[in-house]
Design a protein around this nucleic acid. Structure first.
Lengths: 175, 175
DNA sequence: ACCAGAGAGTTGTGTTTTCAAACTAACTGC
DNA sequence: GCAGTTAGTTTGAAAACACAACTCTCTGGT
């Protein structure tokens, strides 16, 4: 496998003997986003908020999450600036939850997850349809802003500091 | 999650007295897709495969997943038809992993996750850029196939059997 | 005044998953 | 015949999760 030259010593040490501990995960926005939102329930919470369900018990009911976990997730999403917690009553102190603009942007992830599930898990009876503002049921597509073409075509070639050189291990071409 | 089962009166019973146990999660392609792919590491495995890393140790190295978990994830993704396991050597039996077409379609999810992370977590230095086939660095957008407009605009209104009626609890309007 | 119930959690107690590192097994190349 | 590669298992310990029950503060009915 590719003598990748003078890399950082972590990877070297790692491959010296059986890779005991030193994995060197990529720097990557996907991983970083998943750290915030990749746990069980988090994205379903965002789904509920985007559907207009704003109260604790409503979210419990519609997702199936247990209440303690839901508390933890809401706190984490709030800390990440994805959710805003707002008091709607003072006498019994009560809160409801809203998506922040950053949270609303996460709906793109929900949309692509839903499209995949509709196509591959429910090919002829999507359980939910989202109506787009144009009036039609939403059928989503991810495109490149520059050329307008479908984003996922052929092999993409990643570049940047999160890309290591010698790890593709002689299997170069696309799928 | 997503206990579909014989629905009917569960929600009714649930909201009648204090909702002791009976949550009734929505039928939903988002939840169903997350059941397959929503665990930690699963999407990072798909990221690696989409980058052309096909071997067990390469995936361990680049994701940081522990080996036993990776084994479990790969088996699950294979069972779901997202990943194909292919023998590339017989004498020491060795395998490598590929994305199936269904797996390739999941790259849309990765792309939207990456875009969110780039915008909100690394506003001025994305760790990785994906080059689109048009030559430009990919800047993705989710659109509606019908009208070509951005998918996530204003409030969407979900319809279908996965939508329950009385759960929005008097908070009606959009975000 | 009294009780039921909503709402938003917290607490306590088990059950599962995950983790990290070590170990196995079957080879290759020198 | 030994170092090294590859693809996993195994093994305890740690973290996450599930579930029911409980709290605390009101509101609304009788």
């Amino acid at each position: 496998m590719s003598r990748s030259g003078p890399v950082g010593t972590a990877a070297e040490a790692a491959k010296l003997h059986g890779m005991p501990k030193e994995a060197q995960p990529r720097e990557c926005s996907i991983a970083d986003t998943l750290d915030l939102v990749g746990e069980r329930w988090s994205l379903l919470v965002i789904r509920e908020l985007s559907h207009g369900v704003r109260r604790f018990d409503g979210i419990v009911l519609n997702t199936g999450a247990s209440r303690d976990i839901l508390t933890a997730r809401l706190r984490k999403l709030e800390a990440a600036g994805i959710v805003r917690r707002e008091r709607y009553s003072d006498h019994p102190v009560r809160f409801e939850y809203h998506l922040t603009p950053a949270g609303v942007e996460l709906c793109d992830v929900l949309i692509t997850l839903m499209r995949w599930g509709d196509r591959h898990l429910h090919p002829d009876d999507p359980p939910v349809r989202w109506q787009h503002s144009c009036g039609e049921p939403l059928d989503a597509m991810v495109i490149c802003r520059h050329c307008g073409g479908e984003a996922r075509v052929g092999a993409h070639s990643p570049t940047g500091r999160g890309v290591k050189s010698g790890n593709t291990t002689h299997t170069a071409t696309a799928q």
